Simulated scan of single mutants.
Amino acid sequence: MAQSSQIDRIAERVERLLVRYEELQRTNALLAEQVEVLTHERDSLKSRLSAARTRVEALLERLPEAAAGPAPQKDPA
């Protein structure tokens, strides 16, 4: 009788572990999907940043030399 009860407890614990395992598998799949989405978003933002940086650098190159340097300071005397 005691052995049957022990087997039942072990079987119940195994069932709970299997349910928990399935929950963790689903959670892991959702997290992997989020990582993929965020990685794609990060790559897109990096690409946009690079394009914006290129445009800013091109605009800076078009500025006249005097405008690119520091403004001349007046002598306080």
Rank of each mutant, 00 (worst) to 15 (best):
P64S: 02
A51Y: 05
L31Y: 04
S4F: 13
R26S: 08
E61L: 04
A77R: 13
A71V: 11
I7G: 00
E33C: 01
K74S: 11
Q25L: 14
E22T: 00
R13M: 11
M1V: 08
A77D: 13
A52Y: 05
L49A: 09
Q73E: 14
R42F: 11
L63S: 01
R62I: 00
L38C: 06
V14E: 15
V37F: 10
R53A: 06
A67L: 14
Q25Y: 00
N28W: 07
E15W: 02
A2K: 11
A71I: 05
S5C: 04
D8N: 12
L24F: 04
E23H: 02
N28E: 14
A66L: 05
T27Y: 06
I10E: 07
A77L: 10
R53W: 05
L30N: 12
E23K: 01
S50Q: 15
P64N: 02
D8L: 12
V35C: 01
V35H: 03
P70V: 03
T54L: 06
E23G: 00
V14Q: 07
K74R: 15
Q6V: 05
E36M: 10
L45T: 03
E41A: 12
D8S: 11
E61D: 09
A67V: 14
T27A: 09
R16I: 05
L60M: 03
V14R: 15
Q25W: 00
P70I: 02
A66R: 08
N28S: 11
R42P: 00
L45K: 06
A29R: 11
A71K: 08
A51S: 09
K46A: 13
R55L: 08
R16E: 15
H40L: 07
L31F: 03
L49Y: 13
R55T: 07
L24I: 07
R16H: 13
A52F: 06
A77F: 10
T39I: 02
G69E: 15
R55E: 13
E65R: 09
L18Q: 14
R16P: 00
A51D: 13
L60A: 12
S47T: 10
L18V: 08
A68H: 09
S4C: 06
N28F: 10
D8T: 11
T39D: 13
D75A: 01
L60Y: 04
R48A: 04
R62N: 03
R62F: 01
K46E: 11
T54N: 07
R20C: 02
P76T: 00
L31C: 03
I7N: 07
V37R: 15
K46H: 11
Q6W: 10
G69Y: 10
E22Y: 06
I7A: 10
A32N: 10
Y21H: 12
A32K: 13
H40V: 12
A77P: 05
Q3G: 02
T39Y: 02
T54K: 12
L49C: 03
L30E: 15
P72K: 00
R13Y: 01
V14A: 15
Q3W: 06
P76M: 01
D75Y: 03
E23R: 01
Q73S: 10
L59K: 10
V37D: 03
L18I: 07
S44A: 11
V56R: 08
A29H: 06
M1F: 11
Q25D: 14
P70E: 11
P72E: 01
